[in-house]
């Protein structure tokens, strides 16, 4: 018998212990923080930041430092090689190709998914089937990458003209009287088709966050605009978009950062072949498949550098907000 109540019970007890432990930690912390509260905020702030700070240090800060160090060492991480890995990265013949593709991904995925998500959120807002309609767009997010891979291989599959098509895209082409295409073969179009997959997944994220933001627009504002007799498109551009600007920025930034890191789509659909590779995919290959820790680490550091423009933008944003608050 494969189902053992004792073992399953033990697992569920683990869950209970975990939640009790968590509640105890949170409760004690908030209790203690209530006691030490004083006009000076520093100690309270440290207390509030402590759980996140400790976990971030072991989970991300230490690994980030380790990666930076590794990038100056050779493939087996034993001897110091200075900037060799970085020199290799920029002289490597395929770097141009992966850079071009990464740029395409980072430009297109955030803009397209945000545009679709926003448009859809506005269109279905306050309609009768809103909940159902939203779950349709949300569904791709709920499907695992394994499932998404199969779904899209069914869309892009190719069979020659004389046989039955199994891919939807080619069947449509054939119905319209065209020749079936090998979608994933010719660059740069193949990258576009891969990008479509991530847009399909991320639009749900944009839609949910933006929809929540739209709902937070005070109804006085929309009512006032409506009384002024604005058209739907005026309402969209002059009321909705400005009111949800912070949420829009959050969505764009989050998807951009996520897109820089993402490689599952590329890895499962083409394996980075046919000139579709992106930096994150190369990083994974070098660090885990080719046993070239130094080069993999250098690529990871490079990814980190690519995000600095967004970080600077955030710095500006935070400063602005402070000024406004004052």
């Amino acid at each position: 018998m494969s189902f053992d109540f004792a073992i399953e019970g033990e697992k569920l007890m683990m869950l209970v212990y975990g939640i009790i432990g968590f509640a105890a930690v949170m409760g004690l912390l908030l209790l203690a923080l209530g006691k030490v509260d004083s006009p000076k905020d520093r100690w309270v702030a440290i207390g509030f930041l402590a759980p996140a700070g400790i976990l971030l240090s072991i989970g991300l800060i230490y690994p980030a430092i380790r990666t930076l160090t590794l990038s100056f060492f050779d493939s087996s991480s034993t001897s110091f090689v200075g900037l060799d890995n970085y020199v290799w990265m920029f002289t490597h013949a395929e770097t141009r190709e992966t850079l071009r593709n990464t740029a395409l991904w980072v430009l297109l995925v955030p803009t397209l998914s945000t545009a679709v998500g926003l448009l859809y959120a506005v269109l279905v807002d306050r309609t009768r089937f809103e909940s159902f309609a939203k779950s349709l767009i949300f569904m791709p997010m709920a499907i695992s990458f394994v499932g998404a891979g199969i779904i899209w291989s069914f869309v892009y599959a190719y069979r020659p003209t004389e046989s039955d098509q199994i891919g939807l895209a080619n069947q449509l082409v054939v119905w319209l009287g065209g020749e079936p295409q090998q979608w994933l073969l010719e660059d740069p179009w193949n990258t576009m088709f891969l990008i479509a997959v991530l847009v399909w997944i991320q639009a749900g994220f944009a839609m949910v966050v933006l929809s929540a933001a739209i709902k937070a627009i005070p109804s006085e504002i929309t009512e006032a605009a409506r009384l002024d007799g604005v058209t739907s498109s005026q309402m969209f551009w002059r009321v909705t978009v400005p009111s949800i600007r912070p949420a829009l920025i959050v969505v764009l930034v989050t998807i951009s950062v996520g897109t820089l890191k993402v490689f599952d789509v590329v890895r499962t659909m083409t394996g980075g072949q046919f000139r579709t590779s992106v930096i994150a995919n190369e990083m994974y290959n070098y660090a885990f498949r080719y046993d070239e820790d130094g080069k993999g680490a250098a690529l990871a550091v490079f990814l980190f550098l690519l995000v600095t423009p967004i970080v600077f933008y955030q710095v500006r944003l935070v400063r602005q907000r402070r000024k406004e608050a004052r």
Binding site: P63, A287, L303, T308
Partner: peptide, 26 residues
């Protein structure tokens, strides 16, 4: 809360988003 350096901590945490999961595993 008010304390010195909080904006920099926020920016730092924001930047940590880019640390690839794979590099952090080991």
């Amino acid at each position: 809360t008010r304390f010195r350096g909080r904006d920099w901590i926020f920016i730092g945490i924001f930047a940590l988003q880019i640390v690839p999961l794979q590099m952090a595993l080991i």
